[in-house]
Simulated scan of single mutants.
Amino acid sequence: MSVRVKAQRKRRDGQATRERLVQATVEILSREGLGAVSTARVARDAGIVQSGFYAHFASLEDCVVEAAQHIGQRIHDTIREGLAHLREQGVGDFELVLAQYRRILDQLEAQWQFVELLLRYFREPTPLGHTLAAIQQSIRDELTHHLMALLKPLDIPDGGRPEAAYLADLMVNMLLSSVQSLRWEPALNRELVAYLLTVETISMAARTYDWMTEKGHWPDPTRDRG
Score class of each variant (00 low, 15 high):
residue 186 P to W: 12
residue 128 L to Y: 00
residue 190 R to V: 09
residue 163 E to D: 05
residue 104 I to W: 07
residue 172 V to L: 06
residue 172 V to K: 01
residue 193 V to I: 15
residue 140 R to E: 10
residue 201 T to G: 03
residue 184 W to L: 15
residue 104 I to R: 04
residue 153 P to D: 08
residue 197 L to R: 07
residue 129 G to N: 04
residue 179 V to M: 08
residue 100 Q to H: 08
residue 183 R to L: 09
residue 147 L to S: 00
residue 163 E to I: 15
residue 116 E to S: 12
residue 176 L to N: 05
residue 145 H to C: 08
residue 200 E to K: 03
residue 144 T to C: 03
residue 128 L to D: 02
residue 189 N to C: 08
residue 98 L to D: 11
residue 190 R to W: 07
residue 134 A to W: 04
residue 109 E to F: 08
residue 102 R to S: 05
residue 133 A to F: 09
residue 186 P to A: 12
residue 98 L to I: 10
residue 205 A to P: 01
residue 123 R to E: 00
residue 191 E to C: 09
residue 176 L to C: 08
residue 156 I to Y: 06
residue 150 L to W: 04
residue 100 Q to R: 15
residue 142 E to A: 14
residue 133 A to C: 07
residue 117 L to M: 12
residue 187 A to M: 11
residue 163 E to Y: 13
residue 155 D to T: 08
residue 164 A to Y: 02
residue 143 L to H: 00
residue 169 D to F: 07
residue 166 Y to N: 11
residue 185 E to V: 15
residue 97 V to I: 12
residue 138 S to W: 00
residue 173 N to R: 13
residue 196 L to K: 11
residue 144 T to Q: 01
residue 199 V to Q: 14
residue 166 Y to K: 08
residue 97 V to S: 03
residue 98 L to Q: 14
residue 171 M to H: 05
residue 177 S to Q: 08
residue 196 L to I: 14
residue 101 Y to F: 15
residue 119 L to R: 06
residue 176 L to M: 12
residue 199 V to H: 10
residue 121 Y to L: 15
residue 108 L to Y: 04
residue 152 K to P: 00
residue 172 V to W: 02
residue 124 E to P: 00
residue 190 R to N: 01
residue 100 Q to L: 08
residue 162 P to C: 13
residue 138 S to M: 01
residue 140 R to F: 04
residue 190 R to L: 11
residue 195 Y to D: 13
residue 190 R to T: 10
residue 156 I to A: 08
residue 191 E to K: 04
residue 108 L to W: 05
residue 162 P to F: 04
residue 179 V to I: 15
residue 182 L to W: 10
residue 111 Q to S: 13
residue 139 I to E: 06
residue 119 L to K: 09
residue 98 L to N: 10
residue 117 L to E: 03
residue 130 H to A: 14
residue 202 I to N: 07
residue 98 L to E: 15
residue 100 Q to A: 06
residue 178 S to T: 07
residue 97 V to N: 07
residue 99 A to I: 11
residue 136 Q to S: 11
residue 181 S to N: 06
residue 187 A to R: 10
residue 170 L to T: 10
residue 200 E to Y: 08
